[in-house]
Computed example of a mutant assay.
Amino acid sequence: MDDYAASHPGECFAVCCETFFSAPERLADAYPDLYGLLCRYFNQQPLTRMHHA
């Protein structure tokens, strides 16, 4: 993540969510547990969707 994400818990959540959808491989590689948590939270699998596109 970046300095902006570290500025406030709400911003951290927002940046993590944005990364989850826009760069899921980056998030999964750096924070696999967080990626898994967001998969369950959003009921989405962006890595799977990207690999089948």
Rank of each mutant, 00 (worst) to 15 (best):
F13C: 10
H52K: 11
Q45E: 15
E18V: 01
P32C: 12
A23C: 10
A14C: 09
F21D: 02
C17W: 00
F42E: 07
H8M: 06
C12S: 11
D2R: 14
Y4A: 15
Q44N: 10
R40E: 14
L38T: 00
P32E: 07
R26F: 03
Y41R: 00
L27G: 05
Y35S: 02
H52A: 08
R49P: 02
E18T: 02
H51G: 03
P24I: 02
D29R: 12
Y41P: 00
H52Y: 09
E11D: 09
E11F: 01
M1V: 12
Y4V: 15
E18S: 08
S22T: 07
G10S: 07
F42M: 11
R49Y: 14
L47G: 04
C39I: 09
H8A: 12
C39W: 09
P9E: 04
L47Q: 06
R26L: 14
A30W: 00
L37M: 14
E18L: 06
R40H: 14
R40V: 10
E25W: 05
C16M: 13
Q45T: 12
N43L: 13
G10R: 08
E25K: 11
C16Y: 01
P9C: 10
A5L: 09
R49F: 13
A6P: 02
L27E: 00
A28K: 08
V15F: 02
G10H: 08
L37N: 06
F20V: 01
P9H: 05
F13R: 07
R49T: 15
C39G: 10
Q45F: 15
F21E: 04
N43R: 08
D29A: 15
H8I: 11
C12E: 10
T48I: 13
C16N: 08
H8C: 08
S22Q: 13
D33V: 03
G10P: 01
D3Q: 13
Y41V: 01
M50K: 10
M50R: 13
D3P: 14
H8T: 12
G10V: 05
E18C: 05
A23R: 09
D33N: 10
P46N: 04
E25A: 13
A6G: 10
L47N: 05
L37I: 06
F13G: 02
Y35V: 04
D2P: 07
A30T: 09
S7D: 10
